[in-house]
Design a protein around this nucleic acid. Structure first.
Length: 281
DNA sequence: ATGACATGATAAA
DNA sequence: TTATCCTGTCATA
């Protein structure tokens, strides 16, 4: 379930639960056992995120670098940790001292590794600007996009161009700005990019707040339109993501899908014309 | 029981 | 481009 907002929320929640506390660290599954033993009983200083990366800073200069990949999850629970269920790569737990008892279980991560602070900085340095960061410089992303022939739907997924955007935000932000995903980056106007960036800042910020991806404007919510709310594991209301073969909430055209760079891409052929159909008056 | 699929990324071909 | 890794869930048999 991980786009940038998930990782930021996770970092915030993990910090709230464990920062400044001595924690128990273990690897019930065993694949992070040696590293866990080294960290067990030390202080978790801070959890932070950058794009889709999560870093856990432990006292003593140890950093755990986590990337959830497509299927990973990091679940927090209150109280005493129960017997681990499934493949728990990493478990962090705090007893009732210095704060409420809590635990967190990591499963299915692509990466869970002990790294140095320098390595963490190197990972962050490779990322493009992150809409969730106050100090992000969107012009770094614009420079890449404005000079690229690659489709904007491809560029938006490139973490070196913009960090934290994934398959849902890409589809949804392009829809909201009526931009066809296959348009070459260099055909976009700077104003269009700026508007998308500003929108991502708001959308992803909202994503952190509510812990899910919601992208429909007030006039297109289920309540406003009198339709059934989306009922699936994502929960959030969206315009096009995984809505292929269904009717566009705005114009009624059939949402299309196609694979781009190995991922399912979704768009509305009428709301997102490949070329500008007519000038505004 | 088996298979397809998933908000991701990388290495190999 | 395809294969591969990580795990859980859902549909189909």
């Amino acid at each position: 379930m991980p786009e940038g907002h998930t990782l930021r929320r996770l970092a915030d929640d993990l910090s709230a639960a464990f920062a400044g506390r001595v924690v128990g660290v273990s690897s019930p599954q065993g694949r992070f056992a040696a590293e866990s033993a080294l960290l067990d009983g030390t202080e978790l200083v801070l959890a932070e995120s950058a794009g889709k990366h999560l870093f856990l800073d432990f006292a003593g200069g140890h950093v755990v670098h986590v990337h959830l990949g497509l299927i990973g999850g990091f679940r927090l629970g209150e109280g005493q940790a129960p017997a681990p269920v499934g493949q728990v790569r990493l478990r962090i737990e705090a007893d009732g001292e210095g704060g409420p008892a809590a635990y967190a279980d990591l499963r299915g991560a692509t990466r869970c590794a002990l790294v140095t602070p320098e390595k963490r900085d190197a990972v962050i340095a490779k990322l493009g600007p992150d809409p969730l960061r106050q100090d992000a410089d969107p012009m770094r992303a614009w420079a890449r996009i404005a000079s690229s022939k690659r489709p904007i739907g491809d560029l938006l997924m490139d973490q070196e161009v913009i960090a934290g955007v994934g398959n849902v935000y890409r589809a949804e932000v392009l829809f909201r700005h009526r931009i066809h995903p296959l348009r070459p980056g260099r055909t976009l106007q700077r104003k269009q990019f700026q508007a998308m960036w500003d929108d991502l800042v708001v959308l992803m910020g909202e994503g952190v707040r509510v812990n899910r991806i919601d992208t429909v404007r007030p006039e297109h919510t289920p309540e406003a339109m009198g339709r059934e709310p989306r009922r699936d594991d994502h929960g959030g209301e969206v315009y096009v993501y995984r809505r292929h073969e269904q009717a566009c909430h705005v114009c009624g055209a059939t949402i299309r899908t196609e694979i781009l760079a190995g991922r399912n891409l979704f768009w509305c052929p009428r709301c997102q014309p490949k070329f500008r159909s007519r000038a505004r008056t």
